[in-house]
Design a protein around this nucleic acid. Sequence first.
DNA 1: TTAATTGATACTAATATAGTATCAGTTATA
DNA 2: TATAACTGATACTATATTAGTATCAATTAA
Lengths: 153, 153
Amino acid sequence: MKVLTKKTDYAIRALLMLAASRESYVSAKIMAVEQDIPYQFLRGVLQEMIRHNLIVSKEGVQGGFKLTMDPDEIRVNQLIEIFQGGVQVSECMFRKQICANRSRCVLRHEIMRIEQVVQNEFEKVTIGGLFRKLELANQLKPALSTSESVPTT
Amino acid sequence: MKVLTKKTDYAIRALLMLAASRESYVSAKIMAVEQDIPYQFLRGVLQEMIRHNLIVSKEGVQGGFKLTMDPDEIRVNQLIEIFQGGVQVSECMFRKQICANRSRCVLRHEIMRIEQVVQNEFEKVTIGGLFRKLELANQLKPALSTSESVPTT
DNA sequence: TTAATTGATACTAATATAGTATCAGTTATA
DNA sequence: TATAACTGATACTATATTAGTATCAATTAA
């Protein structure tokens, strides 16, 4: 049970960068390098987000992407919806036969309930919220880019 | 985001049948037919459950499978663990570099929290619990097997 | 004019999920 | 005691999803 696929993961990280740069455009290249995401793959992800009006682009030199809305309005929930087709119950037998077999229906009902819980949780998580946590983390631990030799095991 | 794969789904339905038959053995064939599950595929699922000591088998004529424990002790949680490798965060960067990039870590933390919620929910769902709901559903709607012509759209 | 950019699109590769087939061994029972 | 109804084990194939690559046209700041 993989909760987030790469696409969603990359999308969130790209959005966090855009949230950080506010009004100015950020190019796909910069985001790909900084976040260590395959460039062309990220481009596809960004295109998808344009289609869903989460971001806008500017072509040419100095071009790039920026948010169309307040980061607090972008919910991880929606990103999962876009890149993973939301949460899907294992085969919905609705209508088809009212319910070919009862145990499948009971199960289904139970899963839908849990999915609703997950849905609600992911709805609470916004890019804005994540961004503030990120800032806080960076305040508390401003090291990293310096020495702090990585254990070469 | 697919919550349950076929294997888990089939496993649960098979276990519900075993819960219904209590002490007597039920063959894979019967379960496959009644639950409309591909026979050989189900066999594989059953083998996996034997390996995890959820069920035992008896070979030969009149053989089959039965539970090793009270249905209330079998949690859907565990089945997801067995058939879907549990809930996995999108790439754990732990230790590797303490955290190559911060936004990934913040994200990770948030997801882990939600996964814990999911985990807790699925832990509450047991085969015994589902079985009782199933019985209740069958009591309230004892029709089905009779006429009730399926709409041929 | 040109290098840095996005738009669009068509691939390939890797992995996971779903399903099939086969043969050997066991056992109730006719 | 032969045999049909079973499971054990294992090796395959097919399909779908996820991840990643490549290419070329159009745009634009400098």
